[in-house]
């Protein structure tokens, strides 16, 4: 557990450092994710240690956005007179982007024969909803 956490933090630290030094537009943790992926692929021992800890962190990813979300409540006035228009732009463009992205994926998967993989056992949208 401690070794896995140490490795995760080390990857983030290296990522932050490289992003700073090279002035990359990519955030450090995203570079750290790439580095961690290379480590996981390179070593079965790393994978055995990091996989359960990583899954544990990601299981409650939603929690990690709560502090920043509370900050939004205090800054709603920053949206100013344009608030309603910005909400319209965000809602419509998010709907369009999700729909267009998913359909583009589906179309190219079909065209290249990468198949349509379905969750075994049928409908994706029932009960607990879909991704």
């Amino acid at each position: 557990m401690i070794r896995a956490l140490t490795l995760i933090l080390l990857c983030q630290l290296v990522g932050e450092t490289v992003a700073r030094v090279l002035g990359l537009p990519v955030p450090g943790p995203v570079l750290g994710m790439g580095l961690m992926l290379a480590l996981l692929a390179g070593s079965a021992r790393v994978a055995a240690a990091v996989v359960p800890v990583g899954q544990g962190i990601l299981r409650h990813l939603s929690l990690l956005f709560v502090p920043a979300g509370v900050g939004v409540v205090g800054h709603v006035d920053r949206l100013g007179a344009e608030a309603a228009w910005l909400m319209v732009a965000i809602v419509v463009s998010t709907v369009l982007a999700i729909a267009a992205g998913a359909l583009a994926f589906k179309l190219v998967a079909w065209a290249t024969g990468a198949g349509e993989e379905r969750a075994s056992g049928g409908r994706s949208g029932g009960g607990s909803g879909g991704g």
Binding site: G32, L40, A41, V50, Q55, L58, L64
Partner: peptide
Amino acid sequence: VHFLLGPATVALAVPLYL
């Protein structure tokens, strides 16, 4: 809690790997 966003981003390598 907020700090863990960074390590969680690194941890996204796990599902990618799997």
